[in-house]
């Protein structure tokens, strides 16, 4: 028997957060960038991380600096202000989970397994509920990763 609880299902309506700048993943991928070019910690860090404003501005000084959205980046860079990107795939603090990004990259988990095909998204949107523990455990068991609680919860 399958029991479905509101808020626990993998395919619940996941909100797509509003971003401060209309960033387009697809355009950047088509321009030849790879995920790890900007999310530098994805393979080697505990957190995938976001690129610094300087990193954005570094490229855009040459590439379409006059685009109105790019202008926002350049302004933030001039003012030395961070861009407050909204988190798309959220594990709530109340879950008390400490997700290790590089451990998953090391195990050969593809970006799109959890994040979906971000490369063809114009607005980054969640495709899976990454806080769905049943789904995590299923994958851990299939791949003989630890299913000890302390592997994630601590």
């Amino acid at each position: 028997m399958t029991v479905s609880l509101v808020g626990c299902g993998p395919r619940q309506n996941l909100p797509t957060p509003e971003q401060p700048i209309a960033y387009d993943h697809q355009v950047h991928i088509e321009a030849g960038l790879e995920c790890v070019r900007c999310h530098r910690g994805a393979e080697e860090g505990v957190h995938a991380g976001m690129p610094s404003v300087q990193a954005c501005a570094g490229c855009h000084r040459r590439e379409i600096p006059d685009h109105p959205e790019v202008q926002k980046v350049m302004l933030a860079n001039e003012n030395r202000e961070p861009i407050l990107w909204a988190k798309v795939n959220v594990i709530p603090d109340s879950a008390m989970v400490h997700f290790n990004h590089r451990a998953h990259a090391r195990a050969g988990v593809e970006c799109l397994t959890c994040h979906g095909d971000v490369a063809s998204m114009t607005v980054a949107a969640p495709v899976r509920n990454v806080a769905d523990m049943g789904w995590c455990v299923e994958c851990h068991r299939e791949n003989e990763a630890s299913d000890d609680c302390l592997a994630c919860h601590r």
């Binding site: 109340s94 879950a95 008390m96 000890d148 609680c149 302390l150 919860h153």
Partner: peptide, 12 residues
């Protein structure tokens, strides 16, 4: 836990 720790799962 399998490594001899007396684990405490806060969320439970």
């Amino acid at each position: 836990n399998p490594e001899g720790l007396n684990a405490m799962v806060y969320s439970r």
